[in-house]
Amino acid sequence: MRSVARINLAALERNVGRIRAHVGPGVAVCAVVKADAYGHGAVPAARAALAAGATWLAVVTAGEATELRRAGVDARLLVLGPLPGDDLAEAVDAGAEVVVWEEEGLARLLELGRPAAVHVKLDSGMGRLGQRDPEVALALCHRVADAPHLRLTGAMSHFATADERGDAFFGEQLGRFRAFADRVRERFPGVVLHAANSAATFRDPAAHFDMVRPGVAMYGMDPFQQDPAALGLEPVMRWTSALVSVKPLSAGESVGYGRHFVTARDTTIGNVPAGYADGMRRALRWGHAELLVAGRRVPLVGSVSMDSVGVDLGPGARERVGDPVTILGADGDERITAEEIAGRLETINYEVTCMVGPRVPRLHHRDGEPDAGAA
């Protein structure tokens, strides 16, 4: 294989266990497996999360819900996103719980005429999806509860700045949702109240309510963009390849399109068969990224091509064709984290694993042992 993303489901389970221990026994864990589990494989990730004690799953599209059901995953399932057109019927038919925040969405559910479990979303300050007026949101809760074929099962929100420690807006949002949640709980005992993503889960126990919705932390990445180890989390994905070419270049020779890298000395250049079609962003250029070759940090050189990238192994390099290359993950004492790559790209770690493309096979395992139930 040109490159492979090895997904350690045992590490994922330990991360979920770490989250469960953090929130305590009175708070449910809803594992977010949208976007193919942030690039890790939705079905294997869902099964691992449930095995570790998560009791809910969350996705964004009807197709993602259907995929899980067809694979035999029967946990409580929440579709977080909007459901245009026929997607609403597909999600309901999959037995997923859906979200409403305005009259139009509720009217479509009523017109559908099928039994459905519903969560009402308050926009407490994200400015995206959700009802801004808590009075209207509360009225929607009553209308859902009064509909003969609908069940009000949840009330929710989402934080805009939970990952920015010390930011005051997080507290403002939390206060708005708490006031709404208290009124919902008073009128509808048993409704599940939830708002916390990974960052809010670790930032403030007051944000836990009845359930938390961890995503990035479950996959062993730090929601605060620092070091997952500081939160007791283990990276789940390790993306590797191998050298397919090793050759000497003299001083003054160039590597890659545009001749953006010209050797300043005699050196040895290795070629790695992973490019931007695989998820190696073209912005990862010379002086801006490193890879691990046989456990040694070496600089990426030249432009990232669609299918390959060069690395400068240095003068008199001993590396040979076939030597292992780590794009993301650890090799020996060295490691390249999603947070490091995100920092170089001026983005967030979420994007790093999501951008690993579909032509990179996912190999699911448990601490190095093949996982028979991953498919």
Rank of each mutant, 00 (worst) to 15 (best):
R2Y: 08
A5F: 01
A10Y: 01
E13C: 09
A21Q: 10
A45R: 00
A46T: 06
A46S: 10
A46H: 05
L50R: 07
L50Y: 12
A51W: 03
A51K: 13
G63T: 11
R69H: 13
R69F: 13
L88P: 02
A89K: 13
E90T: 14
A91V: 05
V98D: 01
A107R: 15
A107N: 13
L110V: 14
V120M: 04
K121S: 02
G125I: 01
G130S: 07
E135F: 02
L140M: 02
C141W: 07
C141I: 05
V144S: 05
D146L: 11
A147S: 13
R151G: 02
M156N: 03
S157D: 06
G171L: 07
R178N: 02
F180A: 00
D182L: 06
V191G: 03
L193S: 01
S198L: 03
A200P: 02
A200N: 10
P228T: 12
V246P: 03
S250R: 14
G256P: 06
G256E: 12
V262I: 14
A277V: 01
D278I: 06
R281S: 15
G302D: 04
S305I: 00
M306S: 15
G310Q: 11
L313H: 02
D331R: 06
T353I: 12
C354F: 00
A375Q: 13
A375R: 11
